Simulated assay, not measured.
Amino acid sequence: MQSRQGMPGPLQGLDLAPLYRDCLLDSRERRETYDVIAGELCDYGLQWRGGAVDAKAYRCRTGRLAIYSMRYGDEVTITPDLYRDFLLVHVCLRNGIELDGDGETAHVPQGGVYFSAPQRRIRLRWQEGCEQVIIRVPYGLAGIEAGTPLRPGAPLAAGLAPIFSSQLNMLLSLARQPEGLPGLADWAAHAEEGFARFAALHLRADPAQAAAALRSWDPAGGEASERDGSERHADRRDRLVAFIESRLARPIQLDDLTRAVGVGRSQLNDLTQQAFGCAPMALVRRLRLQAARRDLEIDPDQTLTQLSLRYGFEHQSRFSAYYRRLFGEAPRETRGRLHGAAPATGTGRSG
């Protein structure tokens, strides 16, 4: 993955080092790659060309933005769910992509930046070895209201690469600063909104509307409505967690979650991204893993096969991989630690 050195073309000032501190994925398996990416962003169709898989993904979250670095290795064709209430920013670090949004095709080369918000159809083809930074921007943060006419996509305006790089560098740096500095959170929120509105400018169909949106931006306004929104957000969050925890041993589908909370899929995804930093089904997996860990701590003598099946994981190897990613140790290591000794290699129960 790239940081400042070797950054292509007009993005030479971009410093991605803060992004590469949280590795989400390092895999050569297609299924694991799909599961992790879908859990972070949204459900999508994924077609591999047939080459070698060399997938890697990193994540950095600010308060309301999710910033990722991703690669698949092989050439892939992706057909994601439609973007209902967010836009994506694509930054091609290595090789390029082809996007088909609402019938308009765009080729984004290495070093290119593209803003995407299709409403009817989206298809992306990543070249072999393509590596991208992807930024998920909620419409609300960008000042885009329901029904606002948007272009399906647009490249970064000529000459604005230094501004874009400066804004992204600031967001990444702020996300990694220690808490405690007075006023830092307010400044970070201001920087987030500035970046989001900068992205939205490229997609507004009416230039006059874009100018009006900037003039109407009041970073200090809307405090009462924000409080009301925060209360609704907390209520939905609590209902969602209560529903999942009541069904940890039973199958859960995405539509079950939307009905439990009373929102659509896109709103649910926004809720879990903001409250938990992940997609809805990734939250289900996380809560199941946390419950499995508590169960194992209570009864370390149970088999790991029984434990994984009890919480909906049909494949123990995948359960162990998810467990290690979340807790930093395998289930067998947890069990060995609870027994008061390091887990033996090649001995004991296989689980």
Rank of each mutant, 00 (worst) to 15 (best):
residue 296 L to I: 13
residue 116 S to C: 14
residue 95 N to Q: 15
residue 143 G to Y: 06
residue 161 A to I: 07
residue 174 L to K: 03
residue 134 I to V: 15
residue 51 G to K: 12
residue 7 M to Q: 15
residue 327 F to R: 11
residue 237 R to S: 15
residue 14 L to K: 00
residue 174 L to Y: 15
residue 259 R to G: 00
residue 223 E to V: 14
residue 18 P to R: 10
residue 73 G to V: 05
residue 72 Y to I: 03
residue 275 A to N: 12
residue 124 L to V: 11
residue 40 E to D: 09
residue 16 L to A: 06
residue 121 R to W: 06
residue 79 T to E: 10
residue 339 H to Y: 11
residue 177 Q to Y: 02
residue 246 S to P: 07
residue 283 L to V: 08
residue 168 L to C: 03
residue 99 L to G: 07
residue 58 Y to M: 03
residue 90 H to V: 04
residue 27 S to V: 11
residue 4 R to H: 10
residue 93 L to Y: 10
residue 261 V to Y: 05
residue 342 A to C: 08
residue 270 D to I: 05
residue 122 I to W: 09
residue 285 R to M: 10
residue 284 V to W: 07
residue 132 Q to V: 13
residue 85 D to R: 15
residue 83 Y to Q: 11
residue 121 R to M: 03
residue 342 A to V: 11
residue 26 D to R: 15
residue 112 G to S: 01
residue 184 L to V: 04
residue 306 Q to F: 00
residue 285 R to Y: 00
residue 64 R to P: 01
residue 181 L to T: 11
residue 345 T to I: 11
residue 264 G to L: 07
residue 177 Q to H: 06
residue 140 G to R: 11
residue 333 E to T: 12
residue 46 L to G: 05
residue 270 D to F: 13
residue 42 C to N: 01
residue 299 D to S: 10
residue 296 L to Y: 12
residue 113 V to I: 02
residue 64 R to E: 13
residue 122 I to F: 07
residue 214 L to D: 00
residue 198 F to P: 03
residue 307 L to G: 01
residue 96 G to S: 04
residue 278 C to W: 00
residue 199 A to E: 08
residue 57 A to Q: 02
residue 8 P to I: 00
residue 290 Q to A: 13
residue 109 P to S: 07
residue 175 A to D: 05
residue 90 H to A: 07
residue 268 L to K: 07
residue 89 V to L: 07
residue 348 G to T: 05
residue 98 E to W: 09
residue 36 V to F: 04
residue 192 E to K: 12
residue 187 W to D: 00
residue 100 D to R: 14
